[in-house]
Simulated assay, not measured.
Amino acid sequence: MKRGTLFTIAGGLLCGLLVAGALKWRGDPNALWHIVSQQCVPDQQQQHKPDPCLAVDLDRGYALLKDRNGPLHDLLIPVDKVTGIEDPALGRQLLPHYFTQAWKHRAALSDGLKKPIPDAFVSVAINSRFGRSQNQLHVHIACLRPEVFVALSQQGKALDEQWQVLPRPLMGHTYSARTLSATDAEVLDPMALLHDYVEAQGSSMSHYSLLMTPRADGSFVLLSTHLALTELNLGSAGELQDYRCDLMTQL
């Protein structure tokens, strides 16, 4: 057997163990759902205070929560039970556009800071079934890692509205990307766009993750990676985010 084949098999086995370990040791997978459904929503309904959430919007169907993992890291979470990116209702656009709502709440990241975080630094992301710790859909709102910000500035110029594989990996993983105009972002759900792409690949949404970040012209870049055994990739676009926002030190 060739050495390359052995490495591929070994890498696949290792990633399989990582997947199994991640699913087994991720803690209580319903913790977020319990916080939202048993604390934030009742407190909003009974006392008009969404504690411990930052906000609860029952009309639009979401809660905003400051994540304890990192000082500059918020989560947008549905107030209804939605398991994750693989929920079929997302692909059929039967649910609110959670990605769009998350982006609209980016300003909350800057609360308490001396100066606001520039929009160009901010991203919203959702991880695959295998790259997440919770079984309630949640969109991460956080800055990009500085090295990712630079890489996108260099690689993003050639992108258009068709999905294409980036010529160079991000964080050691293969990513596909496309653009989304500011106008389309108001009416199209990025997760539905990803669903169409994944379906065309004959794959499963449960394997995929998605990140959205703005470009200088006001449009957006959508980035997606997926579960890949040979890359030791659990499908977590959240790896591109920085919960401390080190980009702010460059201002």
Rank of each mutant, 00 (worst) to 15 (best):
K115C: 03
R60I: 00
K157S: 10
L159F: 11
Q155K: 04
H105G: 03
C40D: 04
D80R: 15
Q162F: 12
N135R: 14
L113S: 03
H105F: 04
H97C: 05
P42R: 08
Q45T: 12
V79D: 02
D57S: 13
I77S: 01
E161R: 13
V124Y: 03
C53I: 01
V124F: 09
K104L: 13
I141W: 04
Q154T: 15
D74S: 06
F130L: 13
R106T: 12
I117D: 11
H105E: 15
K81R: 15
D59P: 00
H138G: 04
L95H: 11
S110P: 02
A125M: 04
L113V: 08
L137M: 14
A89N: 13
E147D: 15
K81D: 04
P88R: 01
D160V: 00
I77L: 13
L54E: 13
G91M: 07
P50C: 05
F121A: 11
Q101I: 12
G70K: 00
F130T: 04
D59R: 15
R145W: 07
A102D: 03
P42W: 05
L54C: 10
L76W: 10
V82G: 03
H97R: 15
Y62D: 06
K66N: 10
Q136V: 09
E161N: 14
L95Y: 10
A151H: 03
V82P: 09
L65H: 01
H73K: 05
D51H: 11
Y98I: 09
A89S: 14
L90I: 15
T100F: 10
D119C: 06
F99H: 12
A55H: 13
G61R: 10
I126C: 09
Q136C: 09
V41P: 11
V139W: 02
Q46K: 14
L152I: 02
D111R: 15
G156R: 04
P42Q: 02
V139C: 09
F130M: 07
T83L: 03
P116N: 12
D57Y: 10
Q162P: 00
Q162W: 11
D160M: 03
L75I: 02
P52N: 06
A108W: 04
Q154H: 11
P116L: 03
K104R: 15
L64C: 01
V41N: 09
F99L: 15
V124N: 04
D74V: 00
S128Y: 07
P42I: 01
I77C: 04
V124S: 05
N127E: 05
Y98T: 02
K81V: 09
D51G: 13
D87C: 06
V41W: 05
D43T: 13
V56W: 06
L95M: 09
Y62G: 06
L90N: 02
A89G: 03
K115F: 07
I126S: 06
G156E: 11
P96T: 13
R129W: 10
